[in-house]
């Protein structure tokens, strides 16, 4: 346990600058575009300009969700960037130990503890990064709401709830689910995704050139299995299966993929990995 926590700590330590950069980029991009969007409308309203004169829509009252929607691209872009970086890092977190002047993988594989601890610690690190970013986005939304209220005079705005703001664009809606069930689905699938990526990377690291084919084949098979209940007709009302049955199948498929991927990953680390 102690060694596991030390490994997790080390992985987080190695990623700290990139994680901090992502947070700074998100902060600057979202707040900057928010201020610009609101300021533009507020000053137009104060000067009594019309929609035709300024060339953009001027609503009667401003609300926080409205502000988010109107800064759309600059609001979403840093989120998408963060997601991309984290997905890529799910692979790099392994590859960085093999390449470069120092091959840390030698040391990691020679630690006198079971090798699956490496796998679990890297997985924990990735999840920590994801939830750190989510938590940061939540705090940031609260801050941005306060910023909105500071800039927009009370007479020009209507109040909104936090849920209204966080559901107004699809990306936020997915990342910040309102129901616990939805949360489990989103992040459960996300975790399965990371596990499949890990196993694909380990396949490549174990069998090298042939491993690339194995990795692609394995990933495709996993996607296929996950999607198979849908293909059976979850979205068709005239399907042979009841929705509840398909739901159970989907759950079983997810469970199967997770267990197989984790076991395969552990086995590769123990028996087949090569430095």
């Amino acid at each position: 346990m102690n060694r596991y926590l030390k490994l997790v700590n080390m992985e987080i330590h190695r990623f700290r600058y990139i994680l901090a950069s992502l947070m700074v980029v998100t902060l600057l991009s979202q707040c900057g575009s928010l201020i610009w969007t609101i300021q533009r409308v507020v000053s137009a309203k104060e000067k009594g300009l019309t929609q035709a004169e300024v060339g953009f829509a001027i609503p009667k009252f401003l609300s926080f969700p409205w502000a988010i929607v109107n800064t759309k691209v600059w609001f979403i872009l840093p989120i998408l960037l963060s997601i991309t970086v984290l997905v890529l890092y799910s692979m790099i977190i392994w590859y960085r130990d093999w390449f470069g002047r120092s091959t840390f993988i030698y040391r990691l594989l020679m630690l006198p503890s079971a090798r699956w601890v490496l796998y679990v610690s890297k997985l924990t690190a990735i999840l920590t990064f994801v939830f750190s970013m989510i938590a940061f986005q939540l705090v940031l939304l609260v801050g941005e709401n306060m910023l909105f209220k500071t800039i927009v005079p009370a007479g020009m705005r209507t109040d909104s709830t936090f849920v209204e703001a966080s559901t107004i664009i699809p990306v936020l809606d997915t990342l910040l689910p309102k129901q616990f069930e939805q949360f489990i689905y989103s992040y459960g699938l996300g975790i399965i995704g990371v596990i499949v990526i890990f196993t694909a990377v380990l396949l490549e690291r174990s069998y090298r050139r042939l491993g690339i084919l194995y990795a692609i084949g394995y990933s495709a098979a996993c996607v296929g299995v996950i999607l198979s209940p849908f293909i059976l007709g979850l979205d068709r009302s005239n399907s042979y299966w009841y929705p509840s049955e398909i739901y159970t199948m989907e759950l079983a498929a997810c469970l199967l993929i997770s267990v197989i991927s984790v076991c395969l990953g552990f086995w590769l680390l123990r028996k087949k990995i090569t430095v």
Partner: peptide
């Protein structure tokens, strides 16, 4: 196996500590 890593040390011909 893992137990042997307390018994055998390995010095490769390159670094194995992260450069940072």
């Amino acid at each position: 196996g893992p137990a042997m890593y307390e018994k055998v040390a390995f010095v490769p011909d390159h670094l194995t500590t992260p450069t940072g």
